[in-house]
């Protein structure tokens, strides 16, 4: 049974936003239950930031509405903002102010009392390993440290819902891991987290995901559910000339899609389509030498490649 509106952290209905001629968000429905990490995945320009900004009440929808813990982003943003933390994609702290000055300022305008500001700032800086940099000006922080500072700042007023817009984009792999560790801690602290990311591998860390493309969200579900949307079997074809191999497999009947993936070709074979041996035979027949064909697990990357293609065909 679907949960009622009041139980949902986010309940967006037919949300639309246009910029000039571009329909950035085009009738999005999205339901996010409290607790858990909800991943909003999609390529650049899919409309993820626009959607998040509308949910954060910093952008007004052209039509549709979204309820955050039951309150409308259009009509009741003052009831919503105390309960949310919004981290924009761009670093948006004062570059000339220090780490602690930035935390202090944003907490003060949020109305956090002085005693709590001190305590929370100390514990957040500690847990994010930023304590020793608290006097450093924000402009001299590394990319990873900047993201942690932004996250710390959105946590100072202890929001229930975190809206994180690509927090790990442009951050080194080690910092990305660290950031996801922090997100896991927040989930354990029973926060609801909506996190946008262009990295498909990060989807595996989410409890639920939505795939966004060209302003639409065609699919939501757990990672396993989304992967199960992909019919048929996935094969990885290794060949000395992957481009030629790609062209060759595309001509085989029963192949739904094929992509270059690193230096192998990923081939999605429809149910009842060719198996590994048949693929190899087909390629030999068209004169392409393949060294190996192996079945592979459908991962997020493959799922999204397929789903994006389906969405593109439908449009």
């Amino acid at each position: 049974m679907a949960p009622s509106t009041a139980e949902l952290a986010i309940d967006a209905r037919r949300l639309c936003r246009r910029f000039g001629d571009v329909q950035a968000v085009d009738g999005v429905d999205l339901r996010v239950r409290p607790g858990g990490v909800f991943g909003l995945l999609g390529p650049d320009g899919a409309g993820k930031s626009t959607l998040i900004r509308m949910l954060a009440t910093v952008l007004t929808p052209n039509s549709g509405d979204a309820l955050i813990f039951g309150d409308s982003v259009v009509h009741a943003h003052r009831r919503i903002t105390p309960r949310i933390g919004y981290m924009s994609q761009r670093f948006s702290m004062y570059l000339d102010l220090s780490v602690s000055e930035n935390l202090e300022f944003f907490a003060r305008i949020r109305g956090v009392p002085a005693a709590l500001r001190r305590a929370r700032s100390a514990s957040l800086l500690e847990s994010m390993e930023l304590a020793e940099f608290s006097d450093r000006q924000a402009q001299f922080l590394s990319g990873g440290m900047k993201q942690k500072l932004m996250l710390a700042s959105t946590l100072m007023h202890e929001p229930d819902l975190l809206l994180l817009d690509e927090p790990t984009t442009g951050v080194d792999p080690l910092s990305r891991l660290e950031f996801w560790r922090i997100i896991a801690d927040l989930r354990a602290a029973e926060k609801t987290i909506l996190v946008a990311t262009p990295y498909m591998d990060e989807a595996e860390r989410c409890t639920d995901i939505a795939f966004m493309d060209a302003g639409h969200i065609p699919h939501t579900g757990t990672p396993a559910e989304v992967k199960s949307l992909v019919p048929g079997t996935l094969f990885e074809v290794a060949a000395p000339d992957p481009r030629a191999a790609l062209a060759a497999v595309c001509s085989a009947s029963g192949v739904t899609s094929a992509h270059l993936y690193g230096d192998v070709v990923r081939v999605l074979s429809a149910p009842g389509g060719p198996d590994a041996r048949e693929l190899l035979t087909h390629m030999n027949a068209v004169g392409i030498h393949a060294t190996d064909v192996q079945p592979a697990d459908v991962d997020m990357e493959a799922a999204f490649a397929y789903l994006a293609e389906q969405a593109g065909d439908a449009a």
């Binding site: 903002t81 924009s88 761009r90 670093f91 004062y94 305008i109 109305g111």
Partner: peptide, 12 residues
Amino acid sequence: LGTEEQMMVSPL
């Protein structure tokens, strides 16, 4: 700077 948006999500 983008700090405007952070002000928008505050009671300011």
